[in-house]
């Protein structure tokens, strides 16, 4: 059963730029998939449409049975609760501790305090930050900040985790640590979609890889197929 189904999707921005051309893609539940391609090829645009930050101009996107293009603005939150999102620049609240940053995602949903407490501690443990829960973002390394962001993205148990260049600001060693965390999350059953420029990571992980070029999929490598290609 496909968790995500993208059918003939085209995205033309108001400026007239077409970022995605008639794209088809299926992603199954529990998959780990990389989306790669040169700058400006439409990677971010593609994943933004998955969590309805952008609307497709044409075509249809189904995420867990929801027709993303048809969801009303008022109802977008229902989609967002199924999806966790992580960015290159972490997007943490600077005046909140690691714990508070993660808890924030649950507080705004009106979840009871004790439930928040146990969930946050569990997820901080999963990303390896249990002992830094009380530290503020500026007291954490880049890798640790990204772990906080990942923890926040998954704390509510989303089906899908979308990462847009999560290791973009990190050194190779730290990047690999982050990949371990993402692998652990994937092992728990969460579908992981990751946009990246880091080819060495892609090679190491041996996952499915979708190569984009100028808004089109030029190659869809099955697990382990992507080896020494160059883009």
């Amino acid at each position: 059963m496909d968790l995500i189904r993208i059918r003939n999707v085209r995205k033309t921005y108001k400026t007239g730029t077409t970022a995605i051309y008639d794209l088809n893609l299926n992603i199954s539940k529990g998959e780990f998939i990389f989306i790669i391609g040169s700058t400006g090829c439409g990677k971010s645009t593609l994943i933004k449409m998955l969590y309805r930050e952008e609307k497709p101009t044409n075509g249809k996107i189904l995420v867990g049975g929801l027709d993303v293009g048809k969801i009303r603005n008022r109802k977008v939150y229902k989609l967002r609760r199924k999806i966790g999102v992580v960015f290159q620049n972490y997007q943490l609240l600077p005046n909140s501790t690691a714990y508070e940053n993660v808890a924030f995602a649950l507080e705004v949903l009106g979840i009871p305090k004790d439930e928040i407490h146990s969930k946050v501690l569990k997820v901080l443990d999963l990303v390896g930050l249990k002992n830094k829960a009380k530290q503020y973002p500026n007291q954490l390394s880049g890798g640790e900040q990204q772990r906080v962001a990942i923890a926040r993205a998954i704390v509510n148990g989303p089906k899908i985790l979308i990462c847009d260049e999560p290791t973009g600001n990190l050194d190779p060693k730290t990047s690999l640590e982050i990949m371990e965390v993402l692998q652990a999350i994937n092992d728990l059953g969460t579908t992981v979609i990751m946009v990246t420029h880091d080819i060495s990571i892609v090679k190491k992980m041996k996952k499915r890889v979708v190569l984009l070029d100028s808004g089109r999929i030029v190659k869809d490598y099955k697990e382990g197929e992507y080896k020494n290609e160059s883009i």
Binding site: Y51, Y77, R80, Q91, V108, L109, R152
Partner: peptide, 16 residues
Amino acid sequence: KREIEIMRLVGASNIN
């Protein structure tokens, strides 16, 4: 702004 963005991202309803 950032708080609002995160709220949207984690699925807080508009009214909220």
